[in-house]
């Protein structure tokens, strides 16, 4: 499942970032720490399709759907 599917309050591990060649957004996600094994949680889902808020370590990031969908999560971690 993708990061966008994560419900508010839930956490999961990053499985991979869909870094097809030339995808600068994927590269940036990796640069800021969205790497395999890292735990990410969803803090907020503002209404009307607005970008969602995720916590990674001590930092919080807002990602839109297209960007969050690049982050693939493992399903084996309890939320």
């Amino acid at each position: 499942m993708s990061l966008w599917s994560l419900s508010v309050g839930a956490s999961a591990s990053v499985s991979s970032v869909a870094s097809d060649s030339g995808n600068v957004a994927a590269q940036r996600l990796i640069d800021i720490g969205f790497r395999k094994g890292q735990t990410v949680s969803c803090l907020l889902q503002p209404g009307f399709g607005a970008p969602r808020v995720f916590a990674l370590g001590n930092a919080t990031y807002s990602l839109d759907k297209e960007t969050a969908d690049l982050v693939i999560l493992t399903d084996d971690r309890p939320s």
């Binding site: 720490g33 209404g47 009307f48 808020v53 001590n58 919080t60």
Partner: peptide
């Protein structure tokens, strides 16, 4: 990062409380 990042969920939680208000629908 894994070894040295301070475990500071407290910081995120405190921020999230304000965000719940300022970013709530």
């Amino acid at each position: 990062a894994d070894r040295f990042v301070p475990q500071g969920e407290l910081l995120v939680r405190r921020q999230a409380k304000i965000d719940n208000w300022l970013l709530g629908t």
